[in-house]
Structure formats: C-alpha cells, structure tokens
Design a binder for these strands. Sequence first.
DNA 1: TTTATTATTGGCAGCGCTGCCAATTCATGG
DNA 2: CCATGAATTGGCAGCGCTGCCAATAATAAA
Lengths: 331, 331
Amino acid sequence: MDTRQQSATLAQVAEAAGVGESTVSRVLRNHGSFSAKTRERVLSAVERLGYVPNRIAGTLASSGSPLVAFVIPSLSNIVFADLLGGAIGTLEQAQHQAVFAVTDYDAEREEMLVASMLAWRPAAIMLAGYEHTERTVRTLQAASCRIVELLDIDGTALDLAVGFSNHAAGRASAGFLLERGYRRIGYVGHDLMRDTRAAKRHASFRDALVENGAGLAGEEIHPGRSSVEEGRGALSRLLARHPDLDAVYFSNDDMALGGYFHCLAQGIAIPGQLAIFGYNGLDIGKAMPQPLSTIRTPRAATGEVAAKLIVDKAPPQTVDLGFELITGATA
Amino acid sequence: MDTRQQSATLAQVAEAAGVGESTVSRVLRNHGSFSAKTRERVLSAVERLGYVPNRIAGTLASSGSPLVAFVIPSLSNIVFADLLGGAIGTLEQAQHQAVFAVTDYDAEREEMLVASMLAWRPAAIMLAGYEHTERTVRTLQAASCRIVELLDIDGTALDLAVGFSNHAAGRASAGFLLERGYRRIGYVGHDLMRDTRAAKRHASFRDALVENGAGLAGEEIHPGRSSVEEGRGALSRLLARHPDLDAVYFSNDDMALGGYFHCLAQGIAIPGQLAIFGYNGLDIGKAMPQPLSTIRTPRAATGEVAAKLIVDKAPPQTVDLGFELITGATA
DNA sequence: TTTATTATTGGCAGCGCTGCCAATTCATGG
DNA sequence: CCATGAATTGGCAGCGCTGCCAATAATAAA
C-alpha cells in the first residue's frame, strides 16, 4: 500500500496558517516584510504539513533559473569530476542546482545534449573546450543563457572561458624535456580526434621539438579513450618499434602511469633508461615510488572560478588560470 | 551588446504555423494525432523561430517528472562516477534528466540535500547506502517519489535497493586470505565513521578472522578520505608498529595501490613478504606490474539496473548484483 | 486627535505548457 | 446526397509559485 500523499501546496499552507499565499511565499524566501508572529504561524504550518516548496513551479513563475547545466565529455575521467566538484560548492551557496550530461567525447552527442539542456532554461551552460559543431554554436548563441567554455583558452570564447592553454602546456613539456637533455623523444597518447585538448598539446609539443631541431622520434596512439592499461600497452608497442627512445611524453597521467608500470615490469630504469612525462598532475602521481613528472592543471579551481563568474554575473571574459610544471623523479 | 532574444514560446510557434497551441504540443511530442501537412507547418515554424520547448513549464503542467536526483558522497571517488555513468545511459533513453548533489560523506549534509532535491519533485532519488539520519528517512518517506538505495543491500530498503553485500565482501576477502595461508593479517583503511560501507566490510572482515581463530593482527586507520597517498602512508605506519604482518586488507583499491607503492619503494616483496588485498576492482589494478588481488564490484551495473527499475516503475525490491573476487598476483 | 508614513498583508494575473473536451473536418457506406 | 464514425483540431482551465499593486494595520509626527 502506498501511503505517500500528494505533497502540500503553498495554498494549503496559507490556508492552514490563516494567511495569504504571498505571505507564505515571502516568509519562506525571507524576502519582503512580515511580522514575527506571522512568521511563526507560517513555519508551524509548514512543519505540520511537511510542506516542501516546488522549485519547478517557483522557477517557472520567477524569471531567473537556478539551474546550471554541465555538458562534459566523461565522468570516469577524474579531471571532469574535479571540475564539477570545484563548481558545485560555489553553486550550492548561491542556491543553484547542477544538472549534467555526458557527451562521451562525441561532438554530435554534444549537439543533441546542449539542445536538450537548453530546454531546462539554465542560468548557464558549461562546456569542455572550444570544439563544437556549427549547429551547437548556433544553438548556444540563440539561447539566452550564459555560456562557459572550460579547461581550454586557446580560441575565441563565445561568452566566458576559464582554464589554461593546452598549447602552452604542450610547449612547456617539450621545453622541459629538451632542457633536461633528452633528444630521442616519443609520444604515447589516446584518440586525438575526440579529445581535442590532448590533440592541441600533442601538436604544440611536436612543434616545439621541431623548432629545436629535435622532432618527435616516434609515437603510438591508442584509438580509444585513455586508461592506465592502454598506456602500458601503448608504451610497450612504441618501444618495440623505437627501442632507442630516451623519453616519452604521455597524453595524460593515466597513460603515463601505465607506461611507468610497463617499465617496472620490464625492468626499464626510470629515468636513466627512459624518462616519463605526464599531464594533469593527479594526486596518484605524488604517491608513486618515483613521483611523476607532469603538469598540474587547476581543475577544481577552473570549476570554482567558472561558478563564481556565473553567480556574480560577470561580463564576457577569458580567465587564464595557468598550470604548474611538477618536476618529479621520472624525467 | 547582447543580441540574445527571449526564446520563443509555444503560443508564438502556434501563431506562426497558423495552428492551435495543443496541435503544436502534439506534434512536438509526437503524441495524439495530426496530419502530415500540419506536422510540416509546425516543424517549419519551429525551425524558423528557433523554438526550444521549455521543460520547466512542461513538467509543471504534466504530472510526471523527468528528473532523477542523485545524492552521492563524492565525485572524486571513481566508484560514484561509474555508478552515475551506468545510470545516465538508461535514463537518457527514457528522456530522463539527472541532477545531483554531493554529501561529502556527511549525513547532515545528506539530510539537507535530500530536502533540497525533493523540491525539484524528481521521479526518483538515488542515495548511496542505508545510513541516513532519522530526519532524512522521514523526509524521504513523506515524499511521493521512488527511493533507490545503492551499493549496499545489508539492511532494510525504504523502497528499492540495488547493489551487493558489503558484509559478504568483507567475509569473502578474509576467507580468501586465510585460505591462502596468511595468518598475521592487518587492515589499512580510511574514515569509517563517514564511509559506512567500508565500515561494514571492516567489521565483517575482522569477524571472519576471529571466527577462524586468526584475528586482526593490527590496523591503521587514516581519519580522512581514501587516497593512494594516504594508503602509502598508512601502510608505512602500520608496518612500523607490526613488522611481522604477512598480509594487509585495504579499505579499497586506492589505498591498496598506495600500499603497493610503499612496498615497491621499500623493496618489500609482494606477495612473498607481504600480501595486499583491495576492494573495488578498479581498472588500474589490472595494469599493475603484479595485478591487484581484489574484489570487483558491479558499479556501472548497479547504476544501470537502478535506472531501469525506475524507468520500468518496478515494485519495491532489493536486487543483489553480487561481486567477483579477483585473484591477482598481490595475494 | 488627525494626518502622514511605514510596515504588513492579500488578491490575482500570469510563467509556458499539458490534458481534457467539445468542435470541426474527412472518409465511408448506404 | 446524407448519416456515421474516425481523424484532426482548437480552446481553455489549470500545474504551484512569484511579482505587482492595492488594501489594511501599525506607528510616528503634527
């Protein structure tokens, strides 16, 4: 037997408290004026009826929406979880509510999901990066909500952008390895068609090497998503073709950790025989027997700043949060 | 200059198409009957005006809500990301939309967040585990939405429950280690006050050892959340106090990986000198030089099944998805 | 005491859409 | 050509809440 009753409405609370509807609304939102006595009666009626305001109705009636939509490539990549985590705290304080959808690194899906998100009339929509289909861009521009592009600032923002330069990160990584004396440098990565930010790092890394007369000595690209397992396998394949490499740049820390495991398993000395460099600066890198050399990206801060800009209704702008090169023990 | 116009309404589309509002509504939802010609005119008007239906209004007007609320302890723990990932696919197909909030393993926060989620009148609310404050339970029972408790089935469900037995997992782990001949077994874990599922595993693991005349030879509990780094530090501290341990059960794979790293760094032979056993069955365990011995939990499946039950409006029930003991090379 | 102000209230028209029902049109059979 | 039932269609009352404005009560000033 289902004992769940239809939940009470504002009108019922008003009736029970013997006041008008608007008075209840004012008390509950602590907005406008009302006497202490009235407040008491309203709150008591609310308690008695177990009233829970209906935000769907409230949102429809008022102009502003408390929803903030996130359209992210993946949830299993800790990067996006960190991003969300950073944003949520700030949003919550401002009484905002996060809704989200996962594109799986698919631009077509992003297009569909953006449209479906817009149907909720969110105050803002947060997207990863700049690469959207033409149709997505049109849809976004026609929408009357703020647009925030995250984790990448190498491009022209539609409205707000918060993150760091993937091009600069790629260059910085190349610079570091060259400076350390490595010359036969390889690359191990994952699907560059989908992860456009990784593609930018890859391109800039290679360009920087070429400009310095080194060039990429070899590369192995796993066609699927990144993972520790695939990093291990990919490095193994790369070394089979190019046994003489002295350093490898990985598309991210997960792949790099896989590479590290391969070396451990094969008895390859790090960094003496092979240097390893990652990207992201995940916590796990700090706990490795040899701390991972990598670039730490401000993921949580990106989410936090983005949320703050939305809450503060900041004018269109691009915020560069930079990144930090971590000199570990693997390169 | 802000060129964003107020988005069009159903009424405007109806006017532009020269038909009634309900006709537009029927065409857009592909529900009820209308002629092919009418359909054309409506869709063309929609295209012309760039109309995006307002789901806030639609939800308010119709009875059922397309929202499904998730109240989870953490986002940075990949376990919950897997769970969400599993659920989202199914929900999306059924035109549902996920909204979520993070409790940070805090029951008081859960209480507040549940109340705030209920204000969105979701079709269902998904929670991790059974441990809720009394007030949370009251609030939930008074709500007219489905309740799904996830990742734990050791208790009495409020409505639906999907997951596996943490008690059984703890016992299975103990049984495995005993069977393999380990006798001086320690435990390394994280904050048991907050992570009640880990606490259940810990209790059952210890009980199983005691029942077999072994007992827990020592334990080290990190007061904060789990992480690879803390796992490494905790094992180091535990071994300092109990150098004679021959196996250690970790609260999860992250902590176990930290322990593994500690052993690598200290030259402790695995599993000869010390065996390591984890919990969760993360992918990373498979890529380690020695695959991690652990228990693989069906996280994505839990999310998927939970979503399916909601979509299918299944009657109250508890679904045990079980778990799989992975015999790796660390124990 | 009277009037000017200010603090509190309640009434009610929407917000944009869906559901119900009556009205209209179309197709068929006699 | 007209009746009959099916296929289409439009009108409109809400869904539960907020915002605006007028009405009323309370308090201060004259």
